[in-house]
Structure formats: C-alpha cells, structure tokens
Design a protein around this nucleic acid. Structure first.
Length: 253
DNA sequence: ATGCCCTATGATATAGGA
C-alpha cells in the first residue's frame, strides 16, 4: 500500500498536475493539503474517473484537506471536534491502518496570534492522537516544523525563525514522543542531508536544493518493518507552475 | 535586501504562506 502526503497549494490551480500525479505514481492513498477551496469546488469527477474516492474537508480561500483512496475508507473524521473553523485534519481507516492527513498552522511570526495558535494546535493534536483507537497509525502531512538542523539547507539562516524555533520543535517532538510515533523518513535516513519536501518559489531555491523538510510521515512502531520504500517525488516540483511542496511517498507491505 | 514567488479574493492591492 502506497501512502502519500502532498501540500498541493490550491487543488484548482494544480488540477492537471494532480491528475498527472495520480495517473503516473498511482498512490493507494493520497492526503492533500491546502486545497484552498470549498467542498463543492473540489474536482470530485476528475479524481473519481481515475478510480479514487475522495473524502474532502474544504474551506474557502485557506487551508482545506482531503483523503483520496483507491480502497474503501471507513470512520472518517474531520478536525479534533473542538469547533475549530480552520479545516486542517482529515482521518480515515484504510486496510486496517488509521491514516491522518493534516495541515499544521504556519505560525507566521514569533509572538503573533498565529504562532500562539500553532503551539496550542500541536497540544490538541497530541491529545487527539492519544485518544485514537489502538492499531496501526500513520500521521502525515505538512507539519510546518523542521525538526532538526539537518532538515534545512542552512540552519544559520533559519535559526530563531518560525518553523525552527525551539518551542515549535519541542511541540512537534512532544506530540511524536507522547504517541510513540516514528519519523519514518528520518528513521530510514538518519544522517542524510538535503532530504527536503519544500522549496521557496523564489531565487531558484529548488534548483539549488535550498529547501526544508517540513512534510512528514509519522508511523506507529508496527508499521516500521512493513515499510518497503520511501521517496520524495522531486519530479512533481519541476516544470511550470508546481506546488512549492513535493509529494512525500511511503510504501508498505 | 525591507527584495525575489504564488494563490484567492464581491480583488485591480492585500493577506497568507514558509
């Protein structure tokens, strides 16, 4: 089973790329973030034509997440059930694996309302995950946190900035540890540099591989030995009008 | 470099992204 997370940065602006991706990479499950559209604006017909059902949690202008699957999906959940109006989390069970696709808040700048919301949101995520049913669990998405210095091309440039502050890293780490999750890509490549999932649109950052690793696949321990491959599809970041994120892919037996 | 780019919006500048 191939499970992918991809911050597509507007599903409507990127529809052709989405179709191309599904056709060529053929994931079993694709978690999408930053749909930037409402449910009724989602391209259901186009993905259904390729054999995917779509569970969609849209929002006007900002955020929005979806879970596309070739296989049946049960027990769909959206957000944490706390009345948060920002569409950031969608979950479903596929083939016995509880899959959570999420779009963590960006945090904007230190001391901003968004930054406080981000830290609070991580606490809610951690508690909500702890309440999930036992069994294989995979939590993927755009976490907007680069966990280690290794996850940026130059830690000096990013020191103290959002996505890198000690508070954000601690919030991320505490959520991972409290739920006994494994950062799958880092676990399989503990010292690899240049392993990124996002590159700034500006200044030819992708060409220079000046990126960040902020999209992650976190799994329960039972899924680690079942993982057969992990890959960042850098091809999807190339060419004309790409998302600034690449799909992050993991396959399991 | 306070810059670069991209998206959505009752839009023609602004907010948000990371």
């Amino acid at each position: 089973m191939k499970i992918v997370t991809w911050n597509i940065n507007s599903v409507r602006a990127r529809l052709e790329r989405l179709v191309e991706y599904l056709r060529t990479r053929s994931p079993d499950v694709l978690c999408l973030q930053e749909l930037k559209c409402t449910d009724d604006q989602f391209p259901f017909a186009e993905v259904q034509a390729l054999g995917y059902r779509a569970e969609v949690f849209g929002q006007k202008t900002y955020n929005g997440v979806a879970l596309l699957s070739k296989l049946p999906v049960t027990d769909v959940a959206k957000n944490f059930g706390d009345g948060d109006e920002q569409a950031r989390v969608i979950a479903g069970t596929v083939n016995g694996v509880r899959i959570v696709g999420l779009y963590a808040p960006n945090g904007q700048s230190l001391g901003s309302e968004q930054y406080a919301y981000k830290l609070q949101w991580y606490g809610k995520l951690s508690r909500w995950l702890s309440a999930q049913p036992r069994g294989p669990l995979l939590v993927c998405g755009d976490f907007n946190v680069a966990p280690e210095d290794l996850d940026t091309y130059d830690p000096r440039i990013f020191a103290g900035q959002t996505l890198f502050t000690p508070q954000e890293r601690a919030a991320w780490r505490s959520m991972v540890d409290a739920n006994h999750l494994v950062d799958l890509f880092r676990a399989r490549a503990p010292t690899q540099t240049g392993l990124f999932s996002w590159w700034d649109y500006r200044a030819g950052a992708f060409k220079k591989n000046q990126g960040l690793r902020i999209d992650h696949v976190l799994v329960s321990a039972d899924l680690v030995p079942r993982c057969t491959s992990t890959e960042v599809d850098r091809q999807a970041r190339e060419g004309k009008l790409p998302s600034d994120h690449a799909p992050v892919e993991a396959s399991f037996d």
